[in-house]
């Protein structure tokens, strides 16, 4: 649930999602779910010639399982907080 909560905190920010098929989509993060499926609004494709079908799409839903990377603006990520939260979750899971 950690990354789900993390991405929820990034809703409204601009991100670039790179998919496993090498397609890169730039857009505003609209929403995310527990499977890390993503909804992006106002999208633009970084290589439109290879992917003409995306030329007419403004908003899209991306299945979490096909995502390779999500590129985030560095100043949006509090890495310290992330590390602390990760450590907390790890120790909680150990106690379980």
């Amino acid at each position: 649930m950690l990354f789900y909560s993390f991405f929820k905190s990034l809703v409204g920010k601009d991100v670039v999602v790179e998919l496993k098929n090498d397609l890169s989509i730039h857009g505003t993060l609209h929403s995310v779910d527990q499977f890390l499926n993503i909804k992006l609004t106002d999208i633009s494709v970084t290589d439109p010639d290879r992917y003409p079908h995306m030329l007419s799409v403004k908003n899209c839903f991306i299945r979490g399982s096909v995502v390779r990377y999500i590129q985030l603006p560095a100043d949006e990520c509090d890495t310290q907080l992330l590390q602390d939260t990760a450590r907390k979750e790890a120790s909680q899971n150990k106690k379980k």
């Binding site: 998919l19 098929n21 397609l23 007419s56 799409v57 403004k58 908003n59 899209c60 839903f61 991306i62």
Partner: peptide, 13 residues
């Protein structure tokens, strides 16, 4: 088998 779903925007089209 689904990569993504998108809404076709008539302007953009």
């Amino acid at each position: 088998n689904v990569i993504l779903l998108g809404e076709v925007d008539d302007e953009k089209f």
